[in-house]
Amino acid sequence: MSNELLLFDKVSKKLGGKPIIQEATLSVAKGEVVGIVGANGSGKTTLLRLATGMFYPDQGEVRVAGKVVRPGLLGNLPVMIGALIESPSFLPYLSGLKNLLLLASIRNQVDEEGVRETMIQVGLDPDLRRPVRAYSLGMRQRLGIAQAIMEDPQIYIFDEPTNALDTKGVEMFAEILAERVQREACVVLVSHDQGEIDRFCDRVYRVEEGRLFSLREGRVKSWRVVMKSLEDVEKAALLLKNVQMIGRQKGYPAVICQGEWETEAELHHYLSQAGIQLVEVQVNAS
């Protein structure tokens, strides 16, 4: 894939002699959000650590923008990675702004004004002089998000990014994600929240005993479909998953269904092919 930013090529990793990741292959292209789900201890975080160069594969390769991630040479990669893995990590005796300014001074890709703007974007006051040790969990999480995004990297690695965030915080994260994806960044997102995975991710993988299994290859959308007759609804129920009757509209039976179709025309064509007569198809129906 030419616009591929991150690639795991048959990556295996053992920790303490125990295989944690086995022959994982995954590629993430520009503008894509890939979700990783799995039980606790299944290897999700290890996979993210491999992507950020914190661990190096025993077998296989991790490539970032075509360049192999080599031990200790993460800073030499052609594109930057922004990451928030597990709990956000900061020097507890410094303020949030000072922590971010220290990190920003390494690459000098963002000035103080930019850092301040990022803090405001994630809902933090840059002038708050309180040290990070006195921050609440939610504030630390926001600071962690700010740290990951402040230099506008092309690859984002997020491990449970909405942990400890309130509803406003989740919406803030959703806006940031949408904005970055629009700029053709790619995102790998680990979450236990199925709703979050459904909402944000284009593709979803499950990690099970160190192996990656594809769960979904496209973004699931919700559709409202109005059909000519109940007979058509019956046919649709046999054809589609999660079909839910929501009553009648203008006398015609209406259902909600979910699927990965890109456009209304695509779904219309799909159902018509099966001989289902339609009145109306609408995306993102509530």
Partner: peptide, 21 residues
């Protein structure tokens, strides 16, 4: 030791290579 204990080292290593660090 503080870098390792707080995990700040990881944030730094995302921005520079290990030898420079």
């Amino acid at each position: 030791a503080w870098d390792v204990r707080t995990g700040f080292q990881h944030s730094m290593l995302l921005r520079m290579n290990g030898k420079e660090y």
